[in-house]
Amino acid sequence: MGERKAMFNMNMEMVRKQCNAGFMHCDNNTPIVRGETLEPCIRGAKKISADPNLKKLIKEVLTGSDK
């Protein structure tokens, strides 16, 4: 079988040109602080508990006592 000459109504040169163009897209949102896992949530939780007004608000929403 000979080499393919065309595909999708394009010659192989055009097919290969398109395939080789550009770069692979990647996600790259880096962390605010590297190397942490749940630490920011723990810090945030302690800050919630240390603030009487915020603690009351979050407690109301989590326990449904605002409904």
Partner: peptide, 28 residues
């Protein structure tokens, strides 16, 4: 929800200044 709100408190604390009613409505 607590995990989410804790993270927001750490990095987006001004979210909780948008008004109690708005925060409650969003969280519900």
């Amino acid at each position: 929800l607590h995990i989410i709100l804790s993270l927001l408190r750490e990095y987006n604390s001004n979210f909780f200044e948008y008004g109690k009613d708005l925060v409650k409505a969003y969280v519900n």
